[in-house]
Simulated assay, not measured.
Amino acid sequence: MPALQKELNILIADDDSTTRYVLRLLLREHGHQVVAEAQDGEKAVELCGMFKPDIAFLDIDMPRMDGHSAAERIKQAAPGVGMIMVTNLPTLGNVQKALQIGISGFVVKPFNAVKVVEAIDHCMKQKR
């Protein structure tokens, strides 16, 4: 498993409370701080503007605003935020759209610690 250099401030946006809970535990276990959580894309954009996290985990399929739209808005509101998509639908269309927006990585549900850590490492390398 890749080693993480420092504690990161992270936002989690997913309409599923269980997914947020599991991801929060996993991130904390690896020494990271979850600074905010959102149940929908609109709230994720608002919270990213307020907290300016190092990384935002965004579910693609959320109410009020999907992850793709939220990512585009976050890029404008808080350009330094790295973004990782979380999805149970890793279709070619979803992946292509996310890459066009500038998403740094994907974590497919159900996820495991190794995949999450790899996505964080990749995201941080792209930010440098």
Rank of each mutant, 00 (worst) to 15 (best):
A44E: 13
A44T: 14
A44P: 07
A44G: 02
A44W: 04
V45L: 00
V45N: 06
V45Y: 06
V45P: 01
E46C: 08
L47S: 01
L47H: 03
L47Q: 08
C48S: 09
C48V: 05
M50L: 15
M50E: 10
M50D: 12
F51S: 14
K52G: 09
K52W: 11
P53T: 08
P53Y: 11
P53D: 14
I55W: 07
I55F: 04
I55E: 09
A56L: 03
F57L: 07
F57P: 10
L58A: 05
D59G: 01
D59Y: 01
D59M: 06
I60M: 11
I60V: 04
I60W: 05
M62N: 08
M62R: 08
P63H: 13
P63Y: 02
P63N: 08
R64S: 14
R64N: 14
M65N: 07
D66G: 04
G67P: 02
G67M: 04
G67A: 08
H68T: 07
H68P: 05
H68C: 10
H68N: 08
H68M: 01
H68V: 06
S69K: 15
S69F: 02
S69N: 15
S69H: 11
S69A: 12
A70L: 00
A71R: 07
A71Q: 01
A71C: 06
E72C: 07
E72S: 11
E72T: 12
R73I: 05
R73L: 07
R73P: 04
R73A: 14
I74F: 02
K75I: 05
K75S: 11
Q76R: 12
Q76K: 14
Q76I: 06
Q76N: 13
Q76F: 00
A77N: 05
